[in-house]
Design a protein around this nucleic acid. Structure first.
Lengths: 148, 148
DNA sequence: GGTTGTCACTTCGCATGCGAAATACCCTAG
DNA sequence: CTAGGGTATTTCGCATGCGAAGTGACAACC
């Protein structure tokens, strides 16, 4: 009976920002941030995890995995390369394509990233049943898939 | 039985970006964008709606309503003022406080914003029961509230 | 085998957003 | 009334992200 239902859009936006802030405060610290960790924010963490599972992935693959735009990923990778987390490498068979690998630094950061995500996931799922979480997942995927 | 569950964090991020893109394409068009509408993006829409319900709100109130940071809202308002959507006004009783009102342009944009949000909400809720959506809302609020 | 279209990525300009520090102002204790 | 502390906002530097336009490289067709 809420006269104005608390629009899902705004709730989602708020939740996303909250998660990003949490990750940034835990691992990140790029800017003015106190940053106890190694300057890795949420998107960079996603790249690291993808590269851990798919070494030598192309930028296009990472773009698809993160549901981002090529331009955004390009910029993100530039910063990550500056921080020596990943390395760009030319594809021998197609010179348009850029392949990515983790550096030693990136690999070393993986453990922390995984731990941070595990902890975040615990907090996110706390107090919800498996079924409820499945519903949430299904809804989020629905949103991602059905908007033009 | 997914070995690696599709982390809720990434799903949420992807969903949020998708919604933002949708709104920007429909109403926005600020940058290079084709932008059929009036340069109003998702956050600006939130401000307009809040001001419609709470005329003369302070920046702090808007900040709380959007779950954003004061700094972010300050910048957003600067852009919206540049676009003549809102107006800043000094509070007579407390000169630290800034009060906000919709301009004629802002008020005129409201109808479109509401229509856009209604359409978006329809798409977002399509195919989900009331109970399921309640679960999703509850989860999103849980995330917003329980992360430090 | 050269033109033409497509593909992968980068660059550019801008919007959004945060944390820290600065600014300006209010209030209360002394 | 003045010092000190708390509050509201802005400013600054940076990260993230998108769309449009550019670049270089493949591919497909004549």
């Amino acid at each position: 009976m809420t006269r104005r239902p608390p629009r899902l859009v705004f709730l989602t936006t708020a939740a996303e920002r909250q998660m990003r802030r949490w990750i940034t405060r835990r691992d990140g610290g790029q800017t003015g941030g106190a940053g106890n960790g190694h300057g890795i924010g949420a998107p960079a963490a996603g790249v690291l995890l993808h590269l851990a599972d798919h070494p030598g992935a192309t930028i296009g693959e990472v773009t698809a995995a993160l549901a981002a735009s090529p331009a955004g990923v390009s910029g993100l990778l530039a910063r990550m390369e500056r921080a020596d987390l990943v390395r760009r490498r030319a594809d021998p068979d197609d010179r348009r394509t850029v392949r990515l690998d983790l550096t030693a630094v990136g690999t070393a950061a993986l453990d922390d990233v995984r731990a941070a995500l595990a902890e975040l996931n615990d907090r996110l799922t706390e107090g919800f049943t498996h079924d409820e979480l499945a519903t949430v997942s299904r809804w989020l995927e629905h949103v991602t898939r059905t908007l033009p």
